[in-house]
Amino acid sequence: MARPVREINAGSMADIAFLLLIFFLVTTTMDVDTGITRKLPPPLDPNAEPPKVKERNILKVLVNKNDRLMVDGKPATLSNLAERTKTFLTNPQNKENMPEMRVEEIDYLGRVKISKGIISLKNDRGTSYDMYIQVQNELTKAVNEMRNDLAQRKFGIKYDKLKNEEYRKAIQEAVPVPISEAEPEDVGE
């Protein structure tokens, strides 16, 4: 004889619903805005003299209207720009033609060497935005690597994993973003 069909226990339905809810919550990627953050220089005072910077402290990066890259007067490629920038800023071999260093006392870090190097970025009005971002990206990569190295040395953890806001500030101070964008002008070919 067949047993009577009992009412299905709906008590666990809520659990299933929650399970689904959590699944969707976890798998849905919110549309997060991401980008490269930059700080523009304050407006130029027309009477102010441009600061004198020694030749050895400048790395000239030029992008022309055909999206060709030129670094220190020679054609270059995007692929090793980050590496070159890093070598330029850190000056590992203390070369005469590479940037000077100044030593400064920074909280949490002690005495650190800060590069005086500046990257002068110039682009033409005809440069594509994509290329410009790629160059900015490579330069940022160099800075991020230097920050990672310093954070690894001082705190034993990479900069992007560093949570402490004060430590982050200290690292930012020790490794600034040394990009100076020229006043707009046509670079041409």
């Binding site: 980008g35 490269i36 700080k39 523009l40 220089p41 407006p43």
Partner: peptide, 16 residues
């Protein structure tokens, strides 16, 4: 960018 500088809006972000 120049206009933003003139307006003293210096924090910018290139959306990528």
């Amino acid at each position: 960018k120049q206009e933003l500088r003139q307006a003293n809006a210096l924090k910018i972000n290139y959306s990528t």
